[in-house]
Write a protein that binds this DNA or RNA. Structure first.
Lengths: 415, 415
DNA sequence: TCAGTTTGTCATCTTCACCGACAAACGTCG
DNA sequence: CGACGTTTGTCGGTGAAGATGACAAACTGA
């Protein structure tokens, strides 16, 4: 079981284990820390209002977090209102840090993200196709992590390490089952990276589209929205499903492979071995092909296509129209399945969407049930290409946010 | 917000509100009551082992449940093991009852279900197409409820009332948005039925496929399995999605309309207005049509078709083969989206499955990603046609199981 | 019948949040 | 500039709930 779900089990809706008063403390500390992490600094009185706890309880809880160096308190700047000013609690950004890693197809990124979601330092390097092997990737990541660590506060704690990988990730053991774009197959990536880093904290690995969805829901366009469908498309199409504010992982963590839903059973063969998968109709390759270009023209070819569309070139408009139809068909099906209140489009699909939004909307209106689609909004991703990286950081923070002091005890002894 | 999610919010993973010691008590009472409701009678020492609470805590908690007449304690039958025997706690079935209602296409069912999931009394009546109007339906339900109530223990409490309807149900206000098979449109069904029954407890309404899924996960073939895809098909196709043991409802409760996922965009028109929805390829109508029968032959025609298949009649086998292909295509897509560990087939699809399981498996193997489908099992429904009714009862129990004493206070004052 | 084992019960302790009184720190008004 | 009202932190006391540990009860088996 992943760390996220296990630490939360104590307070889930069907807890097998009993609740003790100690659990109450940990839950209330978690509430406050989550509040500060996600919504930024807040005065004590704001915390009182939001949690419903008393002033004395909040005082004690914040005090404990301060003692643990997770939170600082500062005098409030006077805002003109009467009464004694309430000190403002803020997360200690510099000394509570997660490392986030993104293993993309042609680039590698590492970031250090402080509590509160502040990016302290980030690096992204392009890399040639020859260096995507597992060992080379791990070597490169370790080197980047060392560079990033050198910049950090020497007294800082590494709370967790989160990794996003373009591929199918088994979240029960942080291994990569298959990553076609990297040529990986059954790699115990989490364990190997952890060993290479010499870290005692578990390296959490997840699918990059799932992490992008997490990032958008936590800090992006979908912040605060509980039922979200995130669709990420470049060469392939992936997705992240969020229900009640929590990502749907599936039994082993493979959920969200929406690019391989059959939409055209007699269509093109897919690299997954099936035929007519959604990504064979909305991926970058077909779009370029339909506009008369080479399917592996890459980003530059897409730019040219969109320029053509701006200029009104018929072949470009036609290719986009076909794209719009299939995009609408796939999204409509997923709306019927999930009934989200927001659909977020990332990657290529986010770039293309402004050109075809009307056609996509029309197709959805035709294909999705009226009840299910009522109130749904389609929006482009807010975090762009760094969404998986930000999601990886959030994944690494989850353990701390679920049980602050308990996690800290483990982190401090692991050094 | 539905009662289920609101009562659980206090202990969900992201509680906005603080946790008090009173909440601890209510959570622990809930744990014990859930244990007894779902897993049957248990000795106190078993409860100690399962919850991790101490003997004294369990004693006090069980005592409180006994005082509330939710639980009885009896001396254990000696089982040959040494030591002082632990009294066995069992739910009080007869006096804690929910009413379950199932509004199906051509029948109506009402049941009284006692705590622990025991069906105390159930009635199902077929009804002609002329009586499906809202008012007639409500009249019939009220009459059936009165008959059922007459059989119950005069001292029993009605804990809740749950209703399943063949149609799209808005769970935020228990209204039926649209039920094509009944000709209903925007009906405040929950409120109207509640008024007609003269009840003060909220009548909870949900989609019948969602409820069938709930029933299968709580007490059927999928008991204890956390990620389940339930596919229910007769004339139309519906579904219930379960992730982490909890049903996925979507933003307004419309999630699970898997029958309207586009699988054949240039296929048959669907009664929903779209084209090539999954149910146009796997519903009862096409299956009969493909075997050379009238599409509205109903259950008898299906029986004849299956008899033909047993006898090896080519047209029947061919129709089933086509059915198998489309069934596999749809399920494969949903496996890629959800990564369940079990797929449950209900209704017609459950009946047909034994005839075509190999072909369906083969299609899934071709269409679903290897990682996602690994370990997935397809099984027919265990509860059959009564699954929605049983699910309605479970829906009605949820409030009590989330906060036993708090709910009881409301129930007792409402009479 | 007696030792061994398991379990219920009871008094006491610890933890944690609530409550109420008081003091501190601010703005405002005369 | 100082008194007043307002808001908020702090501190001691209270109550609820589970943990602890000693002791009694109830069963098995020799």
């Amino acid at each position: 079981m992943s760390a996220v779900s296990s630490t939360r089990a104590a307070f889930s809706s069907t807890p097998s284990t009993g609740v003790r008063s100690e659990t109450v403390r940990s839950a209330n500390l978690a509430i406050i820390l989550r509040e500060l992490h996600f919504h930024g600094p807040a005065s004590r009185s704001e915390l009182v209002a939001r949690t419903g706890l008393t002033r004395s309880a909040i005082g004690a809880l914040v005090g404990e977090l301060v003692k643990a160096d997770l939170v600082t308190e500062q005098r409030a700047a006077s805002d003109g209102s009467p009464g004694r000013p309430s000190p403002v609690a803020a997360p200690v950004v510099d000394r509570n840090v997660t490392l986030a890693v993104d293993v993309a197809v042609d680039s590698l990124a590492v970031a250090a993200v402080g509590l509160g979601g502040v990016v302290l330092h980030a690096e992204r390097v392009d890399r040639p196709r020859e260096r995507v092997a597992v060992d080379a990737t791990i070597d490169d990541i370790v080197a980047m992590v060392r560079r990033v660590e050198a910049v950090l506060d020497p007294n800082c704690r590494i709370i967790g390490i989160g990794v996003g990988v373009v591929g199918l990730v088994n979240r029960t053991d942080n291994s990569v089952s298959i990553a076609p774009n990297l040529g990986w197959h059954d790699v115990a990536f989490g364990a190997r990276l952890q060993h290479a880093l010499g870290s005692r904290t578990e390296v959490l690995v997840s699918n990059d589209a799932d992490l992008a969805a997490l990032a958008e829901v936590r800090r992006g366009v979908a912040a605060g929205i509980r039922d979200v469908l995130y669709v990420w498309g470049e060469v392939g199409v992936g997705g992240g499903l969020v229900s009640r504010g929590e990502p749907i992982t599936g039994a082993a963590g493979f959920a969200g492979e929406i690019g391989h839903v059959p939409v055209n059973p007699d269509g093109r063969p897919c690299r997954c071995g099936s035929v007519g998968c959604w990504e064979t109709e909305v991926g970058e390759g077909v779009l370029l092909e339909r506009s008369g270009r080479s399917p592996d023209g890459g980003r530059d070819a897409v730019d040219a296509l969109l320029a053509d569309a701006d200029a009104g070139v018929p072949s470009a408009l036609e290719a986009l129209a076909v794209q719009a139809r299939w995009l609408g068909i796939g999204i409509a099906g997923l709306i019927n399945v999930m009934n989200p209140s927001m659909v977020v489009l990332g990657g290529l699909l986010g770039r293309v969407h402004p050109y075809i939004s009307d056609q996509v909307d029309a197709e959805i209106e035709r294909r999705a049930l009226e009840s299910s689609r009522r109130g749904v909004v389609l929006v482009p991703s807010a975090l762009g290409g760094d969404a998986p990286l930000m999601g990886a950081a959030e994944l690494a923070f989850e353990r701390l946010l679920a049980d602050p002091l308990g996690t800290l005890r483990k982190v401090s002894t692991s050094r």
